[in-house]
Design a protein around this nucleic acid. Structure first.
Lengths: 339, 339
DNA sequence: CTGAAAGCGCTTACAG
DNA sequence: CTGAAAGCGCTTACAG
């Protein structure tokens, strides 16, 4: 009738050592006889013993649990499909590294002024991967002096407990605009994302950089903000068209906005890329299915997730590896043409 | 120097009762004096005490943890964006119900013949929400007699521990085809999803049903399979076009495939919807941004996730609520026209 | 209705 | 290098 869960006790008994010794072997302590260690591991294998993480957490101060905070903006908008890939990538490698992944969402976990510190405690997390942080978020400031390991997507904060990961947004944006300039475009509209997103500043920089590198003056009336929504992009396109009849290209800070822009352009009687070239950002799966296939800047979302997990686990284990930058890639398809 | 974590002991001391009594009050046991209960709760509030879930799990047999298994097919294909919405919906309501959500993925958790039973134990789960189950999955059979609560997306299995949730796929498919028939189409191609997916059978039934309801003969050579990929859909379209020059409409079992189909049609010189109408399935966000805006069948993904969580929590608490069916909705946009 | 005590499966000083 | 023992924060029979 005994519960068939095998515990550290069973292993100890069969291996003929004490529970403490088994625990030490399992945790890779150095002060242990090689032979006993081997015997223990063979018993572990034979019995198929798996340590109970819950018990482990209760007695140690570590929990082997990592939180992933995703901004779900309460059903307002749908979510960027890249987020799912990041989540999966993160989950798979943190799992490989022996950590469990707990999903956190802004609506259900970070309500009215909750401190991150509190979430850490309540959810018993060793570390946290934060996606979609905006500079206006109430916990933005807290991150400057938080004492728990955090990895931030696309945002850089100066704190030894915090590391940053993301695509090189300046470079990505630069590549997009450079591609257009090299294709002969001179009047290039830019539809940027949410103004409180860190990435928006960087992508704007890339836009400026490309212009200055190629000695093209920047006209600020060519720059629009559209909050990363397709509706926003549609409106932005109309404003752009009104102000500049001679515009020949538009760079959008997301594929979703690019899609919205193309829709709007088509509706206004322009054809893409014959009349106006469009470049996106992200390289979501649909970018290569729609008509015209979208020229865009690829972010390797799975890799971002994967690296974020390694980065965070390292941080949890006391090693700060610094900021990880993923190279963006220009993918030329059919929505841009040389003029 | 005392650790400032407040425990059940602190509450007991201040309330002037024993630890056991506090525990009973917190767990809503009935055999407890109303007054003591109130006193305890006021102390709990005053101290801001939160029970430690880990300790709770260790001593009871329940863990208050729910697993979400998402099929990530190891980077082969990208994932359906609806999955993310389901995940968030599920997470938010299970969180509201006091359960924590642990993400599980097929590649990292269900490798080579692992039993679900084992995952349950290792991950210490009270229940599991399984998405993207295929009939060829190695754990498909195990589900017929599993003794742990599971909620399955889109698959029906007869076992009191298993409940099913999903859109009415027969109905959804029927609505799509009916819309085409009512618009005057008589030769309607059908590009179905993965042949081992349960939904594919149901969506095929819907296609048949609409034909028989409207006394239209079914021509099997109008039916193709494309594994839910856009490349597959592009090929399928070409085969369809070869066999049937007079085809006027195509129904695709996903928006992604519909997008691929439209691309292929455009490339072959057909215009959508002028020459050929196309209907999708899912209503992903991009369905309303692309040119032409996609007529499709909406699955309310967030609602599916939300309801799945309630269903699972009920199951965990011993109550089987039966199968939940979400109504699909026909969304008519610009990719179909009357002929 | 309430308390004392054992126990969940592990880790971690502390001796030796 | 190893063992005995206390303890992590809770729950749960068992008495009363």
């Amino acid at each position: 009738m005994k519960d068939k869960t095998i515990t550290i006790k069973d292993v100890a008994k069969i291996a003929g050592v004490s529970v403490s010794t088994v625990s030490r072997a399992l945790n890779n302590y150095s002060d242990i006889n090689q032979e006993t260690k081997e015997k223990i591991f063979s018993v572990v294998k034979e019995l198929g013993y798996k340590p109970n993480n819950i018990a482990r957490s209760l007695s140690s101060s570590r929990t082997f649990r990592l939180g992933m905070l995703v901004e779900d903006n309460e059903g307002t908008g749908r979510l960027n499909p890249l987020v799912l890939e990041m989540i999966i990538g993160f989950k798979n490698t943190s799992s490989k590294l022996g950590y469990e992944t707990v999903l956190l969402s802004t609506t259900s976990d970070i309500q009215r002024n909750e401190k991150l510190q509190k979430i850490f405690k309540e959810k018993q997390l060793d570390g946290m991967f934060i996606m979609g942080l905006k500079m206006t978020d109430q916990y933005y400031d807290e991150l400057s002096n938080i004492d728990k390991p955090c990895v931030l997507l696309d945002v850089n904060i100066n704190n030894p407990n915090v590391a940053c990961i993301g695509v090189d947004n300046v470079r990505g944006s630069f590549l997009a605009v450079e591609h257009l300039i090299k294709s002969g475009h001179k009047k290039i509209g830019f539809i940027n994302g949410h103004k409180d997103a860190y990435v928006s500043y960087e992508r704007l920089d890339g836009y400026f950089l490309a212009h200055s590198r190629y000695k093209l003056p920047v006209d600020n009336s060519l720059i629009e903000n559209a909050d990363f929504t397709d509706e926003g992009a549609q409106e932005a396109v109309k404003r752009l068209l009104q102000r500049h009849k001679d515009i020949t290209a538009i760079f959008c800070a997301s594929d979703l906005m690019a899609t919205g822009a193309i829709y709007s352009l088509t509706n206004c009687g322009y054809s893409v890329p014959e009349d106006i070239s469009v470049v996106g950002f992200d390289d979501i799966h649909l970018a290569e299915c729609i008509v015209p296939r979208l020229t865009t800047i690829r972010q390797d979302a799975k890799k971002i997730g994967t690296s974020a997990a390694s980065l965070l686990v390292n941080l949890v284990q006391g090693q700060h590896m610094g900021r990880i930058v993923i190279e963006p890639e220009l993918i030329v398809r059919e929505s841009t043409k040389r003029i």
